[in-house]
Design a binder for these strands. Structure first.
Lengths: 228, 228
DNA sequence: CCAAAAGTGTTTCTATTACACCCATGT
DNA sequence: ACATGGGTGTAATAGAAACACTTTTGG
């Protein structure tokens, strides 16, 4: 297009919305905030905000997340662009959704203080503004697709974890159950776990803690080997 | 946000870019056009254009594709949003890329007449404007991911096709070769193909034509069963 | 000692791979 | 008749699933 041509085009508000999943040992949770402004003031919402004129969209996502929750250094991936003309009730806004998985315990300090974000189990999400429910749905779908091919999900656990905890996580994500024996064998066969000498003591026998073998973990992450 | 708050936000040009893949029997091709305007006038480019103020982003993609190539009724999927601040050399433009696979022969009439779009083998793509090369790269990656889990790729073939043609297509996409016997067995075991009584006659023996069994095809498409 | 969870071993079944071999036909 | 893909059969292997069984330890 001729440079002048740009003038005759419409400019549109572009926003980002952040979907943060966390695991509490039993179920997957999503982080939500109470909207501080109209439209939808007081309603629950994803963490969202506008993209600046000279700001990369991905940078905007990180900035907005930090402003609204205090969370920093979270690796978010672009999920989808929601571009229906009427998706925002007040104005035309095209929104790009980003999502990440984090370990709730690890980030809880950053979170709890000044900001009023709250975790909701993904099966008990309250009513949300605009099309945020649809965004969450899409994020869940992508998560389920992805989890079977990439060793994500570990990001949701503490550094040290037991095989049972890992299994519970996968069962929560995939909404199914696995044979505990087969699960252990399969995971261990990938060599992405290192066994510690320490045991977790909540059960009679006690389960050994494991940590990742970073190198093998990243190799698998790249190759996307099927491991569930 | 307070409605007034919108006023203080930046508005940004939003565009769409369309990536159309086609198969000619030997290799995968991408459709490109010569840009008619600055910046980048005369250079090769994906089919792109701006999103209107009251236009769904997905609708814009279909409109732009039609305007620039004549192609209609093509099912495009959203690929990715490219949002770097400096991706367009003239202005700030956030672009949402869409992609589709089509059968070259079937759409050739629609294409060839007035519009000057051209097919390029994906290993011989010329220099492209902006970040369009990166868009194509991303589209190829997603295609390769997807093709192994969903029976796409059939969209790239004529209605009637032989097992060899199908195999060539998959080999082109996956950049590998398959054992022809195993390939035939595996595809046939999915029951998504119906054998015709007609033979293609380019080889000595001649190969039977096949068509899809629509119902089983769509069932597989939904379930995403691994079939390569 | 026993219940309960952790973890290992064994067996069965299925899917994948490699590759031998038969088939149909134009030249 | 024979070379050339087209297509089927078979045996070896690897992986997944089912499930029995052993281990550990707090009560």
């Amino acid at each position: 297009m001729d440079i002048k041509k740009y003038k005759y085009q419409d400019r549109i508000f572009v926003s980002v919305d952040c979907i943060i999943f966390g695991f509490d040992g039993r179920q997957i949770n999503a982080l939500l905030i109470k909207r501080a402004f109209e439209p939808g003031k007081g309603k629950w919402s994803l963490m969202g905000g506008f993209v600046g004129k000279d700001e990369d969209v991905a940078d905007a996502a990180a900035r907005v997340l930090k402003q609204l929750t205090g969370l920093t250094d979270i690796y978010m991936e672009q999920l989808y662009c929601f571009g229906e003309a009427n998706r925002d009730s007040a104005r035309r806004v095209v929104s790009i959704a980003y999502s990440a998985f984090i370990n709730i315990a690890e980030y809880n300090e950053q979170l709890s203080t000044e900001h009023q974000a709250r975790w909701f189990p993904i099966h008990k999400i309250p009513s949300l503004v605009f099309d945020h429910k649809q965004m969450l749905k899409k994020a869940k779908e992508v998560m389920m697709e992805k989890v079977s091919r990439h060793p994500i999900g570990f990001e949701l656990l503490p550094t040290k974890f037991t095989l049972s905890q890992l299994q519970s996580l996968y069962e929560a994500i995939c909404e199914t159950t696995f044979d505990n024996g087969n699960f252990a064998k399969k995971i261990l066969s990938t060599n992405i776990l290192k066994k510690m000498n320490e045991k977790e003591r909540s059960s009679r026998k006690g389960a050994f803690y494991y940590v990742f073998d970073k190198i093998n973990y990243e190799r698998l992450q790249r190759n996307g080997i099927r491991f569930i």
